[in-house]
Simulated scan of single mutants.
Amino acid sequence: MKRALITGVTGFAGRYLAKNLLDHGYEVWGGARNGSINSVNGVKLIELNYTSYQEIQNKMNDLEPDVVFHLSGQSSVRRSWDIVEETFDANLMASINLLDGIRHSNIKEHVTLLTIGSSEEYGPSAKSPITEDSVAAPANPYGLSKYALGNLSMMYNKVYNMKTIHVRSFNHIGPGQSEGFVTSDFAKQVTDIAKGLLEPIMYVGDLSSRRDFTDVRDIVEAYRLLYERGEAGQIYNVCSSNNVAVKDILDTLVSFAEVQIDMKTDPAKLRPNNVLEYYGSNGKITEVTGWKPQIPLEQSLHDIYKDWLKGS
């Protein structure tokens, strides 16, 4: 039986990844920072602090995982502008100790490490469809921290012969996602209106932008397949290869509510340099692993809507 360790297991993607691995016969351990360990069904939890690589080294020697999925970090682009130092500490400095802890451990020769990055690494100037060969020019602290992580991951593969794979995931969506992300924000507003908690008016920005959305349940399937079939020392996009207008996302969510909702433009929500189209290519991961998204967008949105309706 393969043994997996998920850092950030209590987070949005971490919980789904744990379920996916358990369903496929893995023994799953979850790491969380001190004070934040919550129960996750079927997962054996350990405390993981990233203050020194020696502590990580000891944990790796004790646990001896076959694969480490590194999901832990600060995940909000918006918040990264307000907490730049915290973002780099969580996404980069902690990851350096994780990499060094594995490098100095007894499992260095056989363990695979997947570092989870973001499409934000490419930045707004990237031409869609974005491939792994597109020039990366991140334009916010979150994207820059993930880009630095990816470069470190690849450097440790080349210099120390570690089995590292870096993943650049595009927009995750799904039930259980917190506010601060477009589908969750829209779904909460729509369900609050459906419940009579808000007046039937939504104030929105530019809805013409087209983005790449993938259900989190498909995203974590890609992570597992990359461990099982991916090539160490490589970067892979995880995305749908489709672009969808934000307006279509909102219209679909509103259609579930069966109430009339007026849309009004809020100038404060308009972005001066908004990128109209931004989507990736999943050709590389599909060729290597056979992975493709399986959950239709409308199903994802309906699941998100129902989750907020019941009070997520």
Results as ranks from 00 to 15, higher is better:
Ile83Cys: 13
Ala232Ser: 15
Val204Asn: 07
Arg211Glu: 03
Ser118Pro: 10
Gln260Thr: 13
Thr115Tyr: 06
Asn140Glu: 10
Ser255Leu: 01
Leu149Lys: 03
Thr265Val: 12
Leu226Ile: 03
Asn273Thr: 09
Val220Glu: 00
Glu55Ser: 15
Lys269Ser: 09
Thr87Cys: 06
Ile46Ser: 03
Lys284Arg: 12
Leu225Asp: 00
Pro138Gln: 09
Ile219Gln: 04
Tyr305Pro: 02
Phe170Glu: 05
His166Leu: 02
Ile285Arg: 00
Gly233Arg: 05
Ile6Asp: 03
Ile219Leu: 11
Ile37Phe: 09
Lys264Asp: 04
Gly283Asp: 11
Gly283Cys: 03
Ala139His: 14
Val275Lys: 06
Gly311Tyr: 02
Leu71Thr: 10
Ile83Ser: 14
Pro124Val: 14
Pro272Gln: 01
Leu92Phe: 13
Leu114His: 03
Pro296Gly: 05
Val238Pro: 02
Ala194Cys: 03
Asn171Ile: 13
Lys195Pro: 14
Ser52Gln: 08
Asn61Ile: 02
Cys239Ile: 07
Gln260Glu: 13
Glu199Lys: 14
Ile96Trp: 12
Gln294Thr: 14
Met154Thr: 09
Val288Ser: 01
Gly117Tyr: 05
Pro200Trp: 06
Leu98Cys: 12
Tyr50Ser: 07
Glu179Leu: 14
Arg3Pro: 02
Arg271Gly: 08
Asn91His: 04
Asn97Trp: 11
Ser80Gln: 07
Lys247Gly: 03
Lys19Glu: 06
Ala90Tyr: 08
Ile165His: 09
Ile130Pro: 06
Asn171Ala: 14
Ile304His: 02
Phe170Lys: 06
Asp62Gly: 14
Met202Pro: 08
Val254Phe: 02
Asp66Asn: 09
Pro124Asn: 14
Val84Glu: 11
Val28Glu: 04
Glu120Thr: 12
Thr252Lys: 08
Glu85Thr: 15
Ile295Cys: 06
Thr112Ser: 12
Asp100Val: 09
Leu48Asn: 06
Gly117Trp: 06
Ser281Met: 01
Asn61Lys: 01
Val246Ser: 03
Glu221Arg: 04
Ser75His: 15
His172Tyr: 11
Glu27Pro: 07
Pro141Gln: 05
Tyr279Met: 05
Leu207Met: 07
His104Phe: 15
Ala257Ile: 02
Phe12Asn: 01
Thr7Pro: 03
Asn273Ser: 11
Trp308Leu: 07
Thr289Leu: 00
Gly283Glu: 09
Ala148Phe: 07
Gly11Thr: 06
Glu109Asn: 14
Ala139Arg: 13
Tyr223Phe: 03
Glu277Asn: 12
Gly311Leu: 03
Ile116Asn: 08
Ile219Ala: 12
Asp215Ser: 00
Lys247Pro: 00
Gly233Trp: 05
Trp308Asn: 09
Ser255Ala: 02
Trp308Gln: 10
Asp303Phe: 02
Ser184Phe: 01
Ile304Leu: 04
Gly280Gln: 01
Lys188Thr: 10
Gly143Tyr: 00
Phe186Asp: 04
Asp62Thr: 15
Lys163Glu: 02
Met263Pro: 06
Tyr227Ser: 12
Gln260Gly: 10
Asp133Ser: 15
Gly176Lys: 00
Ile201Asn: 13
